[in-house]
């Protein structure tokens, strides 16, 4: 491993390179946002923050193609040849597709235990297993608890599906595309990434507000953005023959 490796945050149009928040490597019509990193010296937390900060700053002024977190190349030459030149057409095409568009992630969170109460009331299996677990010491009931959790998780999934569908119906008319993401928190109702034209951000935000009003008391709705289009830049680039 050489000493001066290069972290690559994303790719922008070369015309936007002037406003870049970090050093750029330019090749043809494309510019890569990069930073020098010492091989082996990376701290994960810092790397995550930097990745976020740089792309967050870049999306203010430009259309950005985010690269996957943790993309490091040997040196500037590798960025120029293996990334930008070898994939010039592909990258330019993706930039064109995403031009003037940003991501807004909309998350819903169940606000109280109404969901859990409904599940216990609605599922005899959950109710029975829950009764049986009462009074068992924590370790003795381990497998039953996992089983109970599984049953509840399946019920939660059914609710999530319905609530995700409702959110999509409300917000999709104001977006170019959407991706339903994994809802990783136990109380998450939905987690959806929307690709929104900058010009439509106002209308989209109003729609988020309307949805929040509709679901109020049951699900708390939060929109995060505008973001670089993380969920919509999912191409895999081959190591091109130059």
């Amino acid at each position: 491993m050489s000493e001066g490796t290069v972290y690559v945050y994303g790719v922008v149009d070369a015309a936007d390179a002037g406003a870049a928040p970090v050093r750029v490597v330019v090749e043809g019509g494309l510019a890569a946002l990069v930073a020098d990193v010492q091989a082996g010296s990376v701290q994960a937390a810092k790397a995550v923050r930097e990745h976020w900060r740089v792309l967050d700053a870049a999306v203010e002024n430009a259309t950005v193609l985010p690269l996957r977190f943790g993309t490091v190349m040997a040196d500037d030459e590798a960025v120029r040849e293996e990334l930008l030149r070898a994939n010039a057409e592909h990258l330019a095409g993706l930039l064109e597709e995403l031009r003037g568009r940003v991501q807004v992630t909309v998350k819903g969170t169940y606000v109280d235990d109404g969901l859990m109460r409904g599940i216990v009331a609605g599922s005899p299996a959950v109710k029975a297993l829950r009764e049986r677990l009462k009074g068992l010491p924590e370790d003795a009931g381990y497998f039953e608890r996992v089983r109970l959790g599984e049953l509840v998780a399946a019920e939660v999934d059914r609710h999530r599906e319905a609530d995700t569908a409702q959110a999509l119906t409300a917000l999709e008319p104001h977006a170019v595309a959407s991706r339903t993401e994994t809802a990783s928190a136990p109380d998450a109702a939905f987690n959806i990434a929307f690709l929104v034209a900058r010009a439509d951000l106002g209308a989209f935000e109003e729609a988020v507000g309307a949805l929040a009003g509709t679901l109020s008391g049951r699900i708390a709705v939060r929109g995060v953005g505008p973001l670089a289009p993380y969920s919509f830049a999912d191409a895999e680039l081959a190591a091109g023959a130059v």
Binding site: V42, L65, T71, M73, A74, N87, Y230, A233, D234, E236
Partner: peptide, 14 residues
Amino acid sequence: KGIVIDAYVRVSLV
């Protein structure tokens, strides 16, 4: 998320 480049031209950091 984001664009993936081939492992062949990537340097991996632990």
